[in-house]
Design a binder for these strands. Structure first.
Lengths: 208, 208, 208, 208
DNA sequence: TATGAATGAGTCTTCATTCAT
DNA sequence: TATGAATGAAGACTCATTCAT
């Protein structure tokens, strides 16, 4: 009524706060509406149900992150085909990628918190798996290529799967424990070293 | 009634199943009692409230794991003081430690699931942090010692903190995705290589 | 908007479907509006409230049937005064009347369903009584005349009242169980025999 | 608490009143509880849900009437096999049967009202059909027998089905319009004459 | 004519918890 | 030890209705 969708925005804001505070299951629509200064009916004018409200808060961010992830994977795949290239560049690329990824994640800081730690009971409970799937293709291709060049066997699927997980966990962890983007980035430098070394170790000849 | 604590045991068992199925918040005490064939009053004779019931299920395991963790840390600390020792032994020790740790975790398989994925809303929501704290002391001492021997600066606290996390995450991940203990152990071999390489990379001279 | 009363018609149509499906009480104005592709406000422009909407659907048919019923009663009354006539003609007239009545009822088949089985909670809950009242006058006159001619006492009021009811129930029953008008009519032939015999039995001398 | 099931009884009583007043759909559990002086939780201790509450009120009566109906049908069937007997006795039997049936119905007067006019939306909406089914077998056997004796064709199924309906409707009608059992019975005498004549008319030779 | 927004009371139902017995 | 009974607040959600625009 006032101006464009003011109430809806207020509802979304209050809902985000409530979900962050109490988690998806613990959140109360009543409480959200009270904070927003409207009746429950108003909420149901804008949103189909609790899940739909959560969706509205979380989907845009999720889509953004998903799109970015796919783009990164595609770039990696293309780089692999064209220039079977220098390691230093890889490291440099990784750094850039990390910076971009972190930036997107920190742009929607609390939405990410919501998805990662407060979504139990909603359909986003295991949304991390989606990203594992996305990165898996790229990582596998990389592993195959690298193994060929080094003349060693390709690490088994389970291990590769786990490596993706641990890399994603690095982002999750930093996001969950370091609220400042700059510090997060600088910390991620060390982490990348760590992860890269680990990754290389998978391609060492067993006999050595 | 029958013998000593039959009812209590039955309640605990049904509660565990319910918590596993629906999570801490989603679980219903009524439903637990119905499955156990008693009335809610009976439950409240044995347990103060919902949280207390969850405690009773989860605490013993948690204590066991905590004790074992502390013991491992202590052993490591002692080993560090006495025998500034051979690397191969370290690797060997790590393997042994991993085996023991996995065994304890898999002994109480579903309690661990409960704690790691179904405790949102309870005070155990972030119980992993406790273990990070426990291992942190040991890991720091190790880092200091190792840095001294290699003549490089000690990695910063944040990084060390994160390393612990990633190591614990390795256990969490395997526990969450591999129900078979033997397979878990064999997989962990690869993972250890990965983690150890990452760890070593933190002590490489930057100039190199 | 488009042409004259397009929206109103669409609302009426959707409302009829909803009332038929869920009954008066179970029907939802929202749901009706959604199906009609308008907002609730639009509905309230055309109709005062839920009852008024139901009225609009049901009244025309009700009036039509009421008018026809009164006409039949009047014809019967007039026939009674003029030609204290032949029985065969009666039967023949009855058959004609039945045909006409059925035709009107089947013309508005689902409105009749609505009134007879889905109007609980509305003011039409007992609309059948109206028709009992209408036919009662005619039937009583007929009974008096017939009793006089046969020299037997007139059946008591209660019985006469009931007879009307049972005759109407015959229509109701056929309407509710036989969707095809032709079959309904042919079935009604047997029923008329039945009803006529019953009616005659009320005028038999008790001594016989 | 007070004495045996006092609250439950009070709930049942208030519920019956509310259902009678507003119908199944219109009744409000809140309102029932308020009248009974308990909270909604109490109601849900005794009854699973709204339907279950309605069941508890209605089932015993329904079972009683059903049992009695089946017994009557069985008696009729047996009488048919043994003594292909005197008509006057039949009439007499019918009278007795009617008396018994009416007595059972009037014993639970308002439960019957509930079932017949206030059950829309519940699973008893069409409970009358059950009774049609019950009586249909008996009536058909009777029709076959009678047709054989009189040397006329058996009336078609549809007509027989309708006859049952109309006979049951007689009970329904009297129950719905005459609150006094004695008056109802005396009225039913006339009705029986009517119905019997109608029934006989179905077996008259068409040529005559 | 009709929309979009909102109300407020109401729906049935479930919850953890209590307590006399 | 445990039951049976009950509380009271809250859960998500739907309702018919209103009204400024």
């Amino acid at each position: 009524m006032n101006n464009e969708h003011e109430t809806k925005e207020r509802l979304l804001e209050c809902a985000r706060a409530e979900f962050l505070e109490k988690g998806y299951q613990g959140a109360s629509l009543r409480s959200i509406c009270k904070k927003a200064g409207v009746t429950t009916g108003a909420l149901y004018f804008f949103f189909k149900d609790k899940e739909d409200l959560f969706d509205a808060i979380v989907e845009p961010t999720l889509e953004k992150v998903k799109a970015m992830s796919m783009q990164h994977v595609n770039q990696e795949l293309m780089a692999l085909q064209n220039v079977p290239g220098a390691e230093e560049d890889d490291m440099h690329d990784d750094r850039n990628a990390t910076e971009q990824i972190l930036h997107v994640l920190y742009s929607d800081y609390d939405i990410c918190q919501l998805l990662l730690t407060k979504s139990q009971g909603s359909k986003y409970e295991n949304c991390l798996d989606t990203f594992v799937d996305i990165f898996e293709t790229g990582q596998k291709a990389l592993a195959v290529e690298q193994a060929k060049q080094l003349g060693v066997p390709v690490p088994d699927d389970y291990t590769l799967h786990w490596v993706i997980h641990i890399q994603l966990d690095a982002y999750v962890h930093v996001l969950l424990h370091e609220p400042d983007e700059q510090k997060a980035l600088s910390h991620m430098d060390n982490v990348l070293t760590y992860l890269l070394s680990g990754w290389m170790a998978l391609f060492r000849k067993k006999s050595e």
